[in-house]
Amino acid sequence: MSRALSPASAAILRTEARLFAREPVNMFWVLAFPTVLLAALGAIPAFREHKPELDGQSVIALYVPVCVLSALLVAGLQTMPPVLVGYREQGVLRRLALTPVRPRQLLVAQVAVNGGAALASALLAVVVGRVAFGVPLPGQPAGYLLALALATLTAFGIGAIICALSRTMKIAQGVASAFFFPMMGTAGLWLPVQVFPEPLRAIVDFTPFGAAAEALNQAGTGMWPSWSHLGVMAAWAVVLFAAAARWFRWE
């Protein structure tokens, strides 16, 4: 894997991208849903007002990270695991394993396609937030990108665990849905993390998406995200991928 991209890896990546684009469900949930969610929340006039108790931010500004994270969660939990588990269940991986290509390359391609789509979708939400609702672009872009990268790794780490532990596509879909809403909750879908009451907020800060929402919000307002939030995400990513690598089965 030291070469930039072998012809086989390029062909697999192209194929997975095509197949991704052929699923209208993917296109909507990964690419459009986060922005649609932001637009729906932004339509509420009170959400656009700057609040002194939120350090002068508007509620919709707090929701931009939530929408960004929803893109990562949809791609990492809802889209990728059923595809990979289905590939394993139906023998797609088995067939590919007979060629000189490593099935791992398919895994990498899946993460690249879904991760790429999720990041594009996140970017779209940020831009729409700026253009439509006047939410300032991230004041600390480097910190924002770092937090986004760690949040992406964490989301796909959860996806990888789901792939490792689900025997069938149906189970993968069920487990993903069971994880999705609690994760969205910790990311602040129902109530922004910043306004959680204190003991709860401290707990949520230790969850992967609670930490991600805090870090993205800090970088959004121009601060360097706190290392404790970044550290929480990094730790989750390491644990999740190590566990997935331990339990994942090719067949």
Partner: peptide, 17 residues
């Protein structure tokens, strides 16, 4: 694998490929 081809009893390709 570069010199051995095979067809398996149970395998598939992605549905929309």
């Amino acid at each position: 694998r570069a010199l051995l081809g095979a067809q398996l009893q149970e395998c598939a390709l992605p549905a929309k490929l």
